[in-house]
């Protein structure tokens, strides 16, 4: 069964049509990278999938739960109720470009707060999950630090741990390394690579072409609100078919 299904997604901001009918399906264990020029609608697509924006029309299903659906082709999409919305939100994690950690919480609390107060885990359980994740992120010594005491790369790894804590079915990344100095991106990419090896289902918007090629199963090239081309990672990067894809990749 697919973990994410987006069908004919359309979204406008005022007069500006940003998504012009996007279809995206992500299977369990699949890693999908989305690449494309600035303003192409990549972030907007991710924000629609993660309930931060509402779509105008189209269907979104996450792990079998229907977030929204158009009653008929192209009709205004109808969203699920609040309870279902919370259910859907527990199914995915989102990693932001600029981390958005809670600055007043320690690393540990950033990771455990939702576990305890949303997912009703005990403090002990939450701490155990947190310790395991921090170990995986190579951050065990920083459990009691505050975000402001960490480097950008460390902050991003904490935010990945935060997104993983609730055992989501899928994780979305919006340019996870774009806010980082080049020497800090490696640590973050390594963590994502490891997640891919563990068959974590992921959708990653990125400008790191070689990373996308190495890590992703499928790459989607998005521009002007449409999917211009998609295919197996190697193939799309090495032998793009569409002119726009070629032109874009030539810049890298």
């Amino acid at each position: 069964m697919s973990v994410l299904e987006m069908k004919n997604i359309k979204k406008s901001f005022g007069d500006l049509e940003v998504l012009k009918g996007i279809d995206l399906t992500v299977e369990k264990g699949e890693v999908v990278a989305i690449i494309g020029p600035s303003g192409g609608g990549k972030s907007t697509l991710l924000r629609c999938a993660t309930t931060l924006e509402t779509v105008d029309s189209g269907d979104i299903t996450i792990a079998g739960d229907v977030l929204c659906a158009s009653p008929s082709e192209g009709a205004k999409s109808v969203y699920c109720d609040k309870k279902m919305m919370q259910e859907v939100r527990s199914r995915f994690g989102l990693v932001f470009q600029n981390f958005n950690l809670f600055p007043h919480f320690s690393v540990r609390r950033n990771i455990t707060e939702a576990l305890i107060h949303v997912h009703k885990k005990s403090k002990e359980e939450a701490d155990k999950i947190c310790d395991n994740l921090l170990k995986k992120m190579d951050m065990s010594s920083k459990a009691d630090a505050y975000p402001c005491q960490l480097s950008g790369g460390q902050q991003q790894r904490v935010s990945i741990a935060r997104a993983l804590a609730t055992s989501p079915d899928i994780i979305f990344f919006d340019e996870p390394t774009s806010a980082l100095d080049p020497e800090l991106t490696a640590g973050v990419l390594k963590v994502i690579r490891e997640l891919a090896e563990e068959k974590m289902t992921m959708v990653i918007v990125t400008h790191e072409m070689s990373f996308a090629r190495d890590v992703a199963d499928k790459i989607i090239f998005m521009a002007g609100g449409v999917i211009v081309e998609q295919g197996p990672a190697e193939e799309l990067i090495n032998n793009p078919k569409e002119e726009r894809t070629k032109a874009f990749l030539a810049g890298y």
């Binding site: 931060l52 600029n98 950690l101 809670f102 707060e113 609730t166």
Partner: peptide, 22 residues
Amino acid sequence: PKGQYEAAQVLGFTPLQTYFKI
């Protein structure tokens, strides 16, 4: 910053929890 609300929202915090905790 808007990101604080958004991070809280995708983690599943209710608006009230977001307000008082974050």
